[in-house]
Structures are given as C-alpha cells and as structure tokens.
C-alpha cells in the first residue's frame, strides 16, 4: 500500500518535471507571436504590417511552387540571418538572437505544414 503510494507520488513528480519540454513554446505559438505580424496568421503573407508602405510582400507560405524552391537549410539561413542571407529584402528580420535552435527547427516544420511541401 505504502509502496504503491510512493510509486504514485514518484510518477506524478516525474510527470510534472517531464512536462518541462512542453514548456518550450510550441511551433504554432512561436509562429503566431513572431512571424504572423508580417506573414499572416495562415501564412498568406497578409499580416497587419503589410501596408502599402512595405516595399516587398512577405513570402506567402501557402504557395507550394515558390516554397518548394527553398531547402530547409535556406529556410534556416533566412530565419536566422534575415532576408539578405538569401539576397532578399532586409524587411525580413534576422532572428538568430531571438529564437533558440529548437524553436527554429519547429518553425521550419510549421512552414512546411503551411505549404504542404518538402522543399528542394
């Protein structure tokens, strides 16, 4: 009896500390917070920052044909170092000092879901 209570308590504690990983923000939460302000909630490139003043439109992530031209490494480079990393506009910000490796990997997977494409 005592023993199973002990195991139960141990399991609960383990369960709580195990959920530490879930604390790292999920990819959708990260996307909604940092990226949707320009790329839009559904990735169509229509976030609230896209006004007539923006010199280029943010990439539409649902355009599979365009998104297929980019490898996962291209995505990582442009997310980390900004548009100029792929000779694109500097309006695409560099996020290397903001996002963790894990968050960036999560974002790449999230973008692939939005475009339903694998990339080159």
């Amino acid at each position: 009896m005592l023993r199973s209570a002990f195991i139960f308590v141990a399991l609960v504690i383990f369960g709580i500390s195990g959920s530490g990983e879930a604390n790292a923000a999920g990819a959708k939460e990260v996307y909604d917070f940092y990226c949707s302000q320009c790329h839009g909630a559904t990735g169509k490139g229509d976030g609230p920052n896209v006004t007539k003043d923006m010199p280029v439109t943010p990439r539409n992530f649902t355009n599979a044909a365009e998104m297929n031209k980019l490898s996962d490494k291209d995505l990582r480079d442009v997310i980390m170092d900004g548009g100029p990393a792929l000779s694109k506009s500097s309006i695409m910000p560099p996020w290397s000092q903001t996002l963790t490796e894990g968050e960036t990997t999560g974002l790449i997977k999230h973008i692939r879901k939005l475009c339903k494409c694998k990339g080159k």
Binding site: Q37, C38, N49, D53, M54, G82, S90, M92, P93
Partner: peptide, 8 residues
C-alpha cells in the same frame, strides 16, 4: 534600409 525597423 539595412534593418527591418520600418516594417513594424
């Protein structure tokens, strides 16, 4: 120009 400040 260099940075995206004006984007936001």
């Amino acid at each position: 120009k260099k940075m995206p400040c004006s984007g936001c």
